[in-house]
Simulated scan of single mutants.
Amino acid sequence: MTPTKSPVNTEDRTSSPVEDDAGASHARAKEGMAGLAKGLAIIEAFGANTTRMTVSDAAHLADLSRPAARRCLLTLVELGYLAHDGKFFTPLPRMLRLGGAYLSTSSLPQIAQPLLASARDTLQESISLAVLDEGYAVFIARAEAVRIVSTGVKLGGRLPAYCSATGRVLLGGLPEQQVRAHLESVPMKRFTDRTVANLDGVLKAIRRAAEDGYAISDEELEIGMSAMAVPVRNSAGEIVAALSVSVFSGRVSIETLRENFLPTLRETAGRVQRSL
């Protein structure tokens, strides 16, 4: 998946504070590093569906000129974040350090991990925790069930919020005006013939998730795959994450998700909440 937008590219600059007639400062000095912003835009463009890039790919996905994209890619190669075979650029293990900085300093993944593992052992299915980031559900903790074929996304993976169970739960915690503005700004596409990809339908699904306290995505992202998610709230009652389970729909029915899986997910979410 690719981000809905890249960081704003600005020239390196410093602006002086603006003062009114009384001499009070109204603006702080602002500094920006255009090169850093461009490099991060390219890094964020890598994902499950974009595992390698040419210079043209990077320029298109990060909304950069070809020369700027090439300079950024070669710099990332020099720093050990990317490999280059003469045509394609691919991520190297050092890229994990970037996500690891968040995972190692945020308490949420650390608190949740043993609780996710307990729920996985109970349900014998993979359990994940995701947060909202610019219209995507980003997975920050995961307990993987041992199977020949795994289900769901990997740690650090991103799913579009409008058509994923986790995303709809997370969007359900925002004011409707903000949700509507977001949905109107992102291109919605149908991944399968079951994908809800229109504004009214997605808003209805988000409202239902907020009312029911859970959301289900039934083969909307991939045929044969279903998911259920519940909210995780902080002490103020705000939704800070979504706890989810991914299953093969041929093995686990929607009825089983509701009747047998939902109680465990809610119990686990409650345990995470009490630990925050």
Rank of each mutant, 00 (worst) to 15 (best):
A22Y: 08
V240S: 05
R180L: 14
V202D: 00
S226E: 07
P175Q: 01
S15H: 09
L221P: 15
P175V: 03
Y136A: 14
V247G: 14
G167Q: 03
R94F: 13
A69G: 10
L61T: 08
R142Q: 09
T2H: 08
S164C: 10
E176Q: 01
I42C: 03
S164L: 04
V247W: 07
I127R: 06
P160T: 01
A130E: 00
H60P: 00
S150M: 07
L73A: 14
V169T: 12
A215R: 10
A29F: 00
A229P: 11
L61I: 06
S164H: 04
I206M: 02
G47F: 05
E259A: 00
S235V: 03
M53I: 02
V146G: 03
S246R: 10
R194L: 08
A27I: 07
S253W: 11
G213L: 06
L203D: 14
E219Q: 15
L132W: 07
S128Y: 10
A197Y: 01
Q110W: 07
G224I: 07
Q110V: 08
G237S: 02
S185Q: 11
E267H: 14
A137V: 03
H26P: 03
G100T: 09
V252N: 12
T256P: 12
N260C: 01
S150A: 06
K204Q: 05
G167V: 08
V186H: 08
A58G: 12
L74P: 09
L92D: 04
L132S: 12
Q178D: 14
A241E: 06
L171G: 12
G173A: 02
K87Y: 09
R258P: 03
P7Y: 03
L243Q: 05
L243K: 04
V55M: 08
S226P: 12
Q178I: 14
E144K: 14
V146D: 11
F191P: 12
F139K: 11
T268I: 01
D212C: 10
S217H: 11
V240H: 06
I111S: 05
G99C: 05
C163Q: 13
V247I: 11
E211N: 04
V169M: 10
E238V: 12
Y81T: 13
A59K: 02
A242W: 00
A236F: 00
L103E: 02
G80N: 12
R251D: 14
M188G: 08
G135Q: 05
A197C: 13
V169E: 07
D63S: 14
A24C: 07
V55G: 13
R52L: 13
A62F: 04
S6M: 07
H182S: 03
L262R: 09
T105N: 05
K154D: 09
R207I: 04
M95C: 12
G172V: 04
D12A: 06
V240D: 06
D20N: 15
S107Y: 03
G47K: 01
E134G: 04
L199W: 01
L123A: 12
A236E: 10
D85H: 01
M225H: 15
E176N: 00
N260W: 00
A62K: 09
K5N: 02
